[in-house]
Amino acid sequence: MALYSETVMDHFRNPRNVGVIEDADGVGEVGNAKCGDIMKIYLKIKDDVIEDVKFETFGCGSAIASSSMATEMIKGKPLSEALALTNKAVAQALDGLPAHKLHCSVLAEEAIKKAIQDYYEKTGADYDKSIFPACDSCDHGCCHSH
């Protein structure tokens, strides 16, 4: 189908980093089944570097491919770099997404932020809360902006 680029289809058909990390240092889940896309990211962190990352996604081709690409982009990277990842960069790395599908790629960015925030909370780190998206702001109860 020509809806998606070859890169999107590759990541959709052969998603990288699918799975669970049982002893994850940070876990972030965003989205809502009502919306149609849910993404969960697991991080293994050492010395502020993402040593390993896995994801599970319930969602469309765009959501699964974005999860796969985003996890590739942050693997082995310092947290500061992971926090700077934008959905635009993910979409760009995928050679673009159809306009009405950008919504689904936002989740990847937000899931990563949420997993890092979870890590900070768990470790009792002092961090700048303002850079993390506030939950429950969406009028239909999901955790991301549209």
């Binding site: 189908m1 289809m9 959709f12 058909r13 919306c35 149609g36 896309d37 319930f58 969602g59 469309c60 081709g61 765009s62 959501a63 699964i64 009405h100 599908k101 919504h103 689904c104 239909h140 549209h146």
Partner: peptide
């Protein structure tokens, strides 16, 4: 979710449709 189901079915040569939001372009 229905859209991923359709895409993977298409890979297996099965052409179908879904009522999922992600196939309609609305939420």
């Amino acid at each position: 979710e229905g859209e991923s189901l359709l895409l993977l079915l298409d890979d297996k040569g099965v052409e179908a449709s879904s009522g999922s939001a992600c196939t309609s372009g609305s939420l």
